[in-house]
């Protein structure tokens, strides 16, 4: 049990997918202007990432490895991710039209969110078992959501701050992202 807890902590904080591995920066910068949008994006990514790690593990161990067609991994994984994202989009549209409006274009963009493919490929690389893979995906997604919320909180405050004209808008956002990443380096001591 404590092993799983450690794994969750390690993926969410120490090896944070956004700030330490630098994956999934597009939604990190794109949907971090409003709190509810960021939360929704985090939820949707959590759902997609957990589902895809499970699906890609099965794909890898039941199809690609037995047939020896590992060279099709990226293609097959992207196909799976696209299908899961499409399914998530339908589900959200049915369950929560408000969230569907907020997420807008970023929902289909989860397909090309490199964090999703990156975590699936890292799972293969590290030869994780099924439970391990699932937790790895879920932990990464929790880390992603956490960082999204932290960064959105900072940006919401930044919107009211007096920023020099040359840094206003996206540049100060990138500077803050860099500082946040530096702060997350502090978790490396936990490992």
């Amino acid at each position: 049990m404590s092993e799983y807890l450690l794994l969750l902590l390690a993926t969410a904080l120490v090896n944070n997918v956004v700030l330490v591995k630098f994956l999934g920066l597009c939604p990190f910068m794109g949907v971090s202007k409003k709190m509810d949008g960021a939360l929704g994006m985090g939820m949707a990514t959590t759902f997609v990432l957990t589902m895809t790690t499970a699906a890609t593990w099965m794909l890898e161990h039941w199809l690609l490895m037995p047939l020896g067609i590992g060279y099709l991994r990226i293609l097959a994984f992207i196909l799976t991710i696209a299908a899961v994202v499409q399914f998530t989009e339908m589900l959200i549209r049915k369950a929560s039209p408000g969230l569907y409006q907020v997420l807008g274009i970023y929902l289909p963009l989860i397909t090309t969110n490199c964090a999703v493919l990156g975590v699936a490929l890292l799972n293969v690389q590290e030869q994780n078992g099924f439970m391990h893979s699932l937790l790895y995906g879920f932990g990464s997604a929790v880390g992603f959501t956490l960082v999204m919320l932290l960064f959105t909180g900072l940006r919401v405050r930044l919107a009211l701050a007096q920023v020099p004209a040359a840094f206003a808008g996206a540049p100060i956002g990138f500077v803050v992202a860099g500082l946040l990443s530096l702060a997350f380096m502090g978790f490396a001591g936990l490992a």
């Binding site: 794909l59 199809l63 047939l67 067609i69 099709l72 293609l75 097959a76 196909l79 799976t80 299908a83 499409q86 399914f87 339908m90 589900l91 549209r93 049915k94 039209p97």
Partner: peptide, 22 residues
């Protein structure tokens, strides 16, 4: 295998689109 994979995903999404239609 890729053909079967694509077909299965397509069918699943088609069914889902019917049941989750708004």
């Amino acid at each position: 295998s890729l053909t079967i994979l694509g077909t299965v995903f397509g069918l699943l999404l088609g069914v889902a689109a019917r049941y989750l239609r708004v």
